[in-house]
Simulated scan of single mutants.
Amino acid sequence: MNSSTSDNPKIILRKGIQNDLLEMLELFRTTIDEVCKKDYTLQQLEAWKSGAENEERWMDVMTSQYVLIAESANQIVGFCTLDQGNYIDLFFVHKDYQQQGIASRLYNTIEKEALQYHEKRLTADVSKTARPFFEKVGFQVVQEQTVDVKGITLTNYKMEKNLIS
């Protein structure tokens, strides 16, 4: 059951622009709330979502990272960002658009972008929720990590994938 064969043709991928930021932040918060709730406590979800309040960080994402948007009917249904050509920083798909091949399309485009810069490997810090997807596309866990967000600890995984160019 390869999700890339069920790609929704109504989904378009495009580069993100500054005007996407508010919708991206909303998607970030709601995805954490709805999609990640099975893997994290309410306290952990609230701490994680608080990252949306860091305006400086998000402005930096928009100006210094490769931002890829998945859009359907003028609504952002997913996004992924690539920092310094080899680090997947943010990767979120709308709760109503899970299991439709959107993450695979975003990932494949991001990997192509990294290969254009002759990167040898991709890395990411991946949530418990996203780990199965990253493993499916060839990433391996380098180490389990405990991160502190506003005094709350969360588990995630340092993952990487060697790229064959």
Rank of each mutant, 00 (worst) to 15 (best):
G101F: 04
K136R: 14
S127N: 09
F134V: 05
V141R: 10
S104C: 12
M59H: 15
D89G: 08
L42M: 07
R121K: 15
K37Q: 04
I110K: 11
E46W: 08
L122V: 06
G85W: 12
R57H: 09
L106Q: 00
V126L: 01
W58T: 15
K136V: 00
D60V: 15
Q65Y: 15
L42I: 05
Q75D: 05
E71I: 01
W48Q: 11
S64G: 14
V93T: 07
Q140R: 03
R121E: 08
A130R: 03
Y117P: 02
L82K: 11
Q65C: 13
E135C: 04
R131C: 05
Q116E: 08
M62F: 14
V61Q: 11
T41F: 12
I110Q: 09
Q116G: 13
L115C: 11
L42E: 09
Q100W: 06
L27E: 08
K112E: 14
V137D: 05
T63R: 15
S64W: 07
L82N: 12
P132F: 09
A73T: 10
F91R: 13
L115N: 04
K49W: 04
Y97R: 03
K112Q: 07
K120M: 08
S104H: 14
T30M: 10
L27H: 00
G78K: 00
N108L: 07
K112W: 09
R121T: 13
A52F: 09
Q143A: 12
I88M: 04
L115W: 02
D33I: 06
L82A: 01
T123D: 02
N74K: 11
T31M: 04
F92G: 05
D83M: 07
E53I: 03
V141I: 08
V61E: 11
F133N: 07
F28D: 03
A103V: 01
Q75P: 06
E111Y: 03
C36H: 09
V35T: 02
S64M: 07
S127A: 08
S72R: 15
L82C: 05
K38L: 14
V137S: 02
D96E: 14
Q143Y: 15
I88A: 04
I69N: 06
V93G: 06
H94Y: 10
I76H: 12
K112A: 14
H94V: 04
Q44L: 01
I69S: 00
I102Q: 01
A70F: 10
V77T: 05
F133D: 06
R131H: 12
H118M: 05
Q116V: 04
W48K: 15
L45T: 07
